[in-house]
Design a protein around this nucleic acid. Structure first.
Length: 746
RNA sequence: GCGGGCAUGGUGGAAUUGGCAGACACGCCAGACUUAGGAUCUGGUGCCGCAAGGCGUGGGGGUUCAAGUCCCUCUGCCCGCACCA
């Protein structure tokens, strides 16, 4: 933290350092613990046993969002499934609201909104009960395709489904048991991989299709997921590709219930038909188009008490327990007599102890620390045991911005009056990798804080800018492994002089040491050049391969500006900046005010600092080429002061210095942003491009207020244009006012 | 498989609404100044061509007076989701 703070200050970044805090300070997380207790009271935080993603290397649980390609997002090792008691936040209660508000987040990039929509994954359909043949027991399925119900010819259960074992009868019993055991041994990563073969086993039981009356064999199938819907799927092989493959493999019957214009024949079908069509083999619904049949069948199922309309979300509750040391202790005590007892508010914070020993073998060292674990039950006073899990660190990052802006220092979580003033955040910035984790959790937590009465805010961030990722080559030495860029000298390892291997461009990461340390740029060129270079390289939302070619150009430019100011100090010492001009001064003033407009518009809302800086460079070039500075010292002063002022946000130090040299006692950084003078932008004559059949053939200068007729006349008189239409007939002339003329001639 | 994004000179990038493609910079080339320059200033620099001119924004097709921009299609790369019933 100290190192980062020093670097940020070196770069001259303007934070309000008085508000600084670390989320690992007890002064911060004590309020998080308080929010947790309030969530427990409302049932928004709860404990349950569930199959969780477990990283055997880190010895901790991971959220679904933290499993990447079946591997731990931290250590990249394989993740396995494990049954554990865990704390959860009931984010699913907010699924509908989180989804609904997405449409109102107009200041967010569409890509992020799409990812959140998909992640929440709302599906509208029906829950339908299928009775087991010869019993009153029912299996409930969820489907979005109730229009295909008459075509359901078998049933598939997840191997973890509680009915799977119970329905195994007769000689199938053994087969089902061994199948379930076999699937259970496979980890989730493997089960969801591309080439995982769809397999299943017949239970020996049948269920009854509630509308067609068909006797449907019940299978246990490896592709059915227990944690989506009900863990049971009605299989319609004609209209679902997975069911189709499964039916072909196990020779199960096919019934076409949706006929496209070119009628399907079950005997010759090679794949499921998932498109629209006309209902068939569906009793009273025959002849309807399948879309309207969806609604009618849903109504019918409800009326008959067979099923009901239902909505399903892909979103799962957020598991927040972690077996990590670094985190906020979960403020709960386990008592043999009283059960789960929340830590009383007056006993907060539960401070993370620092006298722990690290074994290096994973797992939390808190569990081994008796002074932390052993505690008296707050209810009955008997010996009890403290929770040793800590929160997922995403909990801390879910509300730090609110605390940063609206801390009610020693008195509470947030100061509502401050929240009224500061929240929501006007402009949030982060990498796109946060699209479904941090940004969804922060939205959820904001709604929690609102519903606990802590602030009246629905959404945390009005505008979101997703920064592109910065990539860089990795370098490695056969002996010393990954190397920082500064450890490579002339392609050799600085430690052992062996040849260094260059890897591909990858996202910057500390572990691979392909990181940019601003210090060396600052040391060599100063903070202003370092700032300007990183802003000038590309627009912020774009990915960038870091490359320091070009930093010299920024350094050169700042020197050029410096000289422009100092070489003209004498000339402009006693003159005020121009407010109008004559002759050639008008042209320079036009560039000055055009630049003010361009820079202002590029910064405000667009964040295109690269083009803003380019525009200032053009102004500086114009100043260098201005050959009547002796005649127009006021215009020179206005131009130079404008350059310095416009540069302030990018290179504040040198700008402030030059401002002082220009004779000002005031501080630029607290001064006013310049505005452009419309009058200075007015042009008497404008250049019109003349095309013949869409190709540029000439350019004419006309009065800015020239009529279309006059522009057309001037265009046709241009010698080169005349040459190109000489042996042709002019069919049409298009005049775009202020821009171009296109002569269509054949 | 589904969803999203990207593709422009030797390089980073510009073109905000369909209207001069390549702004600005890096690099390169030339000239000036200089004992010298890796400093500075000026000019040049998409490709082909002596020129006139032609070609040119991943490929192909289309709409339009006019397409980097809109539509269709294909290819490549990146990101997210992924047996979601």
């Amino acid at each position: 933290i100290d190192n980062m703070r020093t670097q940020l200050k070196k770069m001259g970044l303007s934070y309000d350092w008085d508000r600084e805090f670390a989320t690992c300070d007890a002064d911060y997380y004590r309020w998080e613990q308080l929010v947790f207790l309030k969530m427990m009271e409302k049932g928004l935080a709860y404990k349950k046993s569930s199959s969780v993603n477990w990283c055997p290397d880190c010895q901790t649980v991971l959220a679904n969002e933290q499993v990447e390609d079946g591997c731990c997002w931290r250590c990249d090792n394989d993740v396995v499934q494990k049954e554990l008691e865990q704390w959860f936040f009931r984010i699913t209660d907010y699924a509908e609201e989180l989804l609904g508000w997405i449409d109102r987040l107009e200041g967010w990039p569409e890509s992020v909104l799409t990812m959140q929509r998909n992640w929440i994954g709302k599906s509208i359909g029906c829950e339908i009960d299928f009775r087991i043949d010869g019993s009153d027991v029912k299996i409930r399925v969820f489907t979005t395709r109730q229009d295909t119900l008459y075509g359901a010819t078998f049933m598939s259960l997840a191997p973890e489904h509680p009915m799977a074992r119970k329905l195994a009868v007769g000689e199938q019993k053994e087969a089902v048991e061994s199948f379930i055991a076999r699937v259970a041994r496979q980890d989730k990563a493997k089960r969801t991989s591309d080439d995982y073969e769809k397999e299943g086993v017949f239970t020996g039981s049948y269920c009854i299709n509630p509308v067609s009356g068909r006797r449907m064999p019940v299978y246990v199938a490896n592709f059915v997921l227990m944690d989506y819907g009900t863990g049971a799927v009605m299989a319609v092989p004609t209209h679902d590709q997975r069911d189709f493959e499964f039916a072909r493999k196990y020779d199960l019957p096919l019934v076409v219930v949706i006929q496209p214009p070119e009628a399907l024949d079950p005997a010759t079908m090679t794949e499921a038909w998932t498109g629209p069509g006309c209902m068939a083999n569906s009793d009273r619904f025959d002849g309807l188009d399948n879309e309207s049949a969806k609604e009618k069948i849903a109504d019918y199922l409800e009326a008959e008490g067979i099923g009901k309309k239902a909505v399903n979300f892909r979103l799962r509750d957020w598991g927040v327990s972690r077996q990590r040391y670094w985190g906020t202790p979960i403020p709960v005590i386990y008592c043999g007599a009283c059960g789960v007892v929340p830590v009383p508010e007056k006993d907060l914070p539960v401070v993370l102890p620092t006298d722990v020993s690290f074994t290096g073998e994973g797992g939390s060292p808190l569990a081994a620390l008796d002074s932390f674990v052993s505690v008296d039950c707050p209810k009955c006073g008997k010996a009890a045991r403290r929770e040793t899990d800590t929160f997922d660190t995403f909990v801390e990052s879910s509300w730090y911005f609110a605390r940063y802006a609206c801390a009610d220092y020693d008195r509470g979580v947030l100061d509502k009056a401050k929240a009224e003033y500061w929240m929501p955040v006007d402009q949030y910035i982060g990498g796109v990798e946060h699209a479904v984790m941090h940004l969804l959790y922060a939205r959820f937590f904001t709604k929690i804080l609102r519903d606990l009465g802590l602030m009246d805010v629905d959404e945390p961030f009005i505008n979101l800018l997703t920064q592109g990722m910065v990539c860089m080559e990795t370098k490695s030495c056969p002996e010393h492994g990954w190397l920082y860029p500064e450890e490579v000298v002339d392609g050799q390892c600085a430690k052992c002089s062996q040849k260094v291997a260059t890897g591909r461009n990858e996202k910057m990461s500390k572990s691979k040491k392909n990181v940019v340390d601003p210090d060396h740029l600052i040391a060599r060129y100063g903070a202003d050049t370092a700032r300007m270079f990183s802003l000038f390289a590309s627009p912020p939302e774009k990915d960038l391969e870091w490359n320091e070619q070009g930093v010299e150009g920024c350094y050169r430019f700042l020197n050029r500006v410096w000289r422009a100011v100092f070489d003209n100090l004498e000339l402009i010492r006693d003159v005020p900046p121009a407010t109008s001009a004559e002759g050639k001064g008008v042209e320079l003033r036009r560039v000055v005010h055009r630049t003010i407009r361009k820079v202002t518009e590029d910064i405000d809302g667009r964040f295109h600092f690269n083009t803003a800086i380019a525009a200032i460079m053009e102004l500086v070039n114009a100043i260098y080429l201005f050959d009547e500075k002796r005649e127009h010292p006021e215009v020179m002063r206005e131009a130079l002061e404008t350059v310095v002022t416009l540069l302030t946000p990018f290179v504040p130090h040198i700008a402030e210095e030059m401002w002082g040299e220009l004779g000002h006692a005031s501080r630029l950084s607290t001064g006013r942003w310049p505005s452009w003078d419309e009058a200075a932008l007015v042009e008497e004559n404008i250049l019109i491009v003349v095309q013949v059949n869409g190709k540029v053939r000439g350019k004419v200068t006309v009065a800015a207020d020239a009529t279309s007729e006059a522009v057309e006349k001037a265009a046709l008189e241009d010698p080169n244009v005349a040459r190109f239409i000489a042996d042709k007939t002019v069919r049409k002339v298009i005049v775009v006012p202020g821009r171009l003329v296109n002569v269509v001639a054949t």
